[in-house]
């Protein structure tokens, strides 16, 4: 009996561990795209703060990557049934799926801000700070409503 319970407990533990790792491909992909954003924002933020020396090629490469992510078709990644209530390991709130149009508008705001960053990155160091502010605003604009707290 003891053995049986122990086995059951162990298996339950394994099952939980497995769910945490086996996120749906869509969730992994969207978390990945946000990481790509964060890494490239890090380069531009470093330049704006003076921690990284400005050169047009570095700044533009980062900005181009942000634009690249902005072109990914989001409905493919935000698939029905992959919200925070249905999947453990995502903070995408179910409200996204209730307000897909608004969610799309918010993504468009990011797209616009990323395009402006592309211009700013080629222009010079001082243009990057304000463009970052706008980009950050587009992140906040969406996270304020659609990302669950940690």
């Amino acid at each position: 009996m003891k053995k049986l319970i122990t086995t059951a407990v162990l298996m339950a533990g394994l099952a939980t561990a497995a769910t945490a790792q086996d996120l749906p491909a869509e969730v992994k992909a969207r978390q990945g795209q946000f990481r790509i954003m964060a890494l490239n924002l890090g380069v531009l933020g470093g330049i704006a703060k003076g921690a990284i020396e400005y050169d047009a090629a570095t700044a533009s490469a980062a900005a181009d990557s942000l634009v690249g992510v902005s072109m990914v078709h989001q409905p493919t990644l935000f698939k029905e049934g992959t919200d925070s209530m249905s999947v453990d390991g995502t903070r995408a709130m179910p409200e996204i799926w209730d307000n897909m149009d608004d969610f799309g508008t918010k993504w468009e705001a990011y797209k616009t801000a990323a395009a402006e960053m592309q211009t700013a990155a080629a222009t010079g160091k001082d243009a990057i700070g304000p463009a970052l502010g706008k980009l950050g605003g587009s992140c906040k604009g969406c996270h304020d409503t659609y990302r669950a707290p940690e």
Binding site: R91, H143, R147, P149
Partner: peptide, 9 residues
């Protein structure tokens, strides 16, 4: 370079 969310935004 994660971004602020929720009420903190």
């Amino acid at each position: 370079y994660d971004s602020v969310g929720g009420h903190m935004a």
